[in-house]
């Protein structure tokens, strides 16, 4: 009796949960499907779900018409560049704060966090004008720098919470064992910190890849990453849904995969360790 009730319950939950899950995922699924249709089929009524002539034409077309690869490359450079540079600055800082905390470490951490709370729009004008006067509008350099600064507090915080979990006694043991500071970092700290660094890297690439304020406001064509490139499809003459879908699918696919891998770290990173 009881077992059967549990089983029925499980079947009901399975059906319901899948329904909810597929509904939420539907816009993405629909985008992916549409990217394989022709423009005609894309706007056809009634819409065709699976039974249409599958074609990769849109993907080639997107590249032919607007040099998709350049924008994809911009996205790669900007997200990897800003995250990489951010890590370079943040790893020593987080290391110091986690293992050699001083009186003001906590205040510094909270202050760093508060810079993240600054709304981007509040400093739009100065950043725009600075970039303009340096001739950096529509350049990758400007975006790498700006996004690095935007994400630096998150990077420091994430690394800090990961480093905090490495017991201090282990580093002391290394010191007793004769490891110099450099060797301590190479042989002990880094291998233990790699998982944390990797998930920090992953989450921040995602955040930088999807950033859509500075990328829209500081680029026009040359340095436009995918966020800005896709936005150009909003103009009325750009209503090519199948091509939009193809471009969108390419833009979200890699990040979706990375995101699925980093779902655990996501919670921790975005709540600054408040929820683990």
């Amino acid at each position: 009796m009881a077992r059967e009730a549990t089983r029925n319950r499980k079947i009901a939950f399975t059906a319901f949960a899948w329904l909810v899950g597929l509904t939420l995922f539907f816009p993405i699924l629909w985008t992916i499907l549409t990217s394989f249709k022709t423009e005609g089929e894309a706007i056809a009524t009634p819409p065709s779900l699976l039974f249409f002539e599958w074609s990769l034409e849109n993907y080639f077309e997107v590249q032919r018409r607007s040099n998709y690869l350049r924008h994809a490359m911009n996205s790669v450079v900007i997200s990897l560049g800003s995250t990489g540079l951010g890590l370079l600055v943040a790893i020593p800082a987080a290391w110091a704060m986690a293992f050699s905390p001083g009186k003001h470490t906590k205040d510094i951490l909270m202050w760093m966090l508060s810079t993240k709370m600054l709304p981007a729009v509040g400093v739009l004008m100065p950043i725009y004008l600075i970039c303009q006067s340096l001739g950096l509008l529509d350049s990758r350099i400007a975006l790498v720098a700006v996004l690095m600064m935007m994400n630096l507090p998150i990077i420091v915080w994430m690394l800090y919470t990961y480093f905090k979990e490495i017991p201090g006694e282990i580093l002391e043991a290394a010191r007793m064992d004769g490891a110099s500071l450099g060797k301590e970092i190479v042989y002990v700290l880094t291998p233990m910190a790699v998982p944390g660094i990797a998930s920090t890297l992953l989450l921040n690439i995602i955040l930088a890849w999807n950033e859509a304020f500075w990328t829209l406001n500081l680029t026009s064509s040359q340095a436009a990453p995918l966020t800005a490139f896709i936005a150009s499809y909003s103009s009325p003459e750009g209503l090519f849904w199948a091509k939009l879908s193809a471009a969108s699918t390419l833009a979200i696919a890699p990040i979706l995969v990375m995101g699925w891998f980093s779902q655990k770290q996501l919670v921790r990173g975005l709540t600054f360790g408040a929820v683990k």
Binding site: F25, I28, T31, N210, A212, I252
Partner: peptide, 17 residues
């Protein structure tokens, strides 16, 4: 995975879709 996927879609894509 299906449920969390929308979070990784860039704002311009989700808005246009």
């Amino acid at each position: 995975l299906l449920v969390i996927a929308p979070f990784f879609v860039m704002p311009t894509v989700s808005a246009l879709v």
